[in-house]
């Protein structure tokens, strides 16, 4: 699953392969390299949670809606 994330408001250059903090379809921060492993580990934990847990559901929803942060590309106006 892939989704465009706009780079209009991120305050650092973002390159393919970078991870970004996404909020409603906009990257608001480039995640520093040294934080990536720990952050992914945390998401994995949340994704493994079962049931109707609100926090996991929010994270899962976010993942379902946008899974494109690994290769962000500028969205162009159509």
């Amino acid at each position: 699953m892939a989704r465009d994330v706009r780079l209009d408001v991120v305050d650092e250059p973002v390159a393919p392969g970078d991870y970004v903090l996404n909020h409603v379809g906009f990257a608001i921060r480039r995640i520093p390299e040294e934080e990536i492993a720990a952050t992914l580990e945390l998401y994995e934990t949340l994704l493994r949670e079962e049931g109707d847990d609100l926090m996991s559901a929010d994270v899962r929803g976010e993942f379902e809606a946008t899974r494109a942060t690994k290769t962000p590309r500028e969205e162009t106006e159509s």
Binding site: R6, D8, V9, H23, V24, G25, F26, I28, E77
Partner: peptide
């Protein structure tokens, strides 16, 4: 709706056209 974090997205969309 939403706080400033979300308002930023609205602003960026308007500025982009």
């Amino acid at each position: 709706t939403g706080f400033e974090t979300t308002a930023v997205a609205t602003a960026a969309a308007l500025l982009a056209g």
